[in-house]
Amino acid sequence: MLSYSVEVLQSLLAYYNQALWPGHLLAVALVLLALLLVAFPQQWGGRAIAVVLAAGWLWVGWVYYVERLGRIDFSAPLYGAAFLLQGLLLLWTGVLRGALRWRMRLDLYGSVALLLLLIAVFLLPASVWFADAGWRQLRLVGLMPLPTVLFTVGMLLLTASKTPLHLTVIPLLWALAAGATAWTLALTAETALAALCVLASVMVIWRGRVARPQAA
């Protein structure tokens, strides 16, 4: 049950992007840093990537959902709370416990991960640009929910060991809810991307179930 129209959502996005500029540059820089750390692992890389991911979830949860979307959508604070929780879980798991390490992989999981990262970081912003919607409709990782979830699920497919289940639950539930919303609004591309997110989240869970325990 949506309380706003696509037109109003686009307007909200325009105001949001306008208010954030030039914060976009920082978001892009952090995302590229995370990708570099996957390609060229460092001792401290796992924790740094977790901080980048957590920062994105916390920002989207508070600034986008609670402060912005909350003005037109009564259910936005609920989504905001879920994003804040995911941010805290990433901090706890990846930073405090240091339980997340990333590496490139060339199997099916790696290919799907690459696809998700490509869409989240490059194709989604580019599609908005080439659709003549202008930078005001820009959706970037760490600033908007869809690219943030796509990017995170892609990264979770690239963890060196099995991904803790608790990091997959919120992205999966969000993708299901977002898919239903996009379907209601007849947003075909968003519906397809949410479906891809669901599929990838299931793959993360599946990989965790079949993964062998790593030797210490």
């Binding site: 949506l2 309380s3 706003y4 129209s5 109003v8 307007s11 909200l12 003005r71």
Partner: peptide, 8 residues
């Protein structure tokens, strides 16, 4: 929906 137009 119709009057929920935010700040625009």
């Amino acid at each position: 929906i119709t009057f929920n137009v935010g700040e625009d």
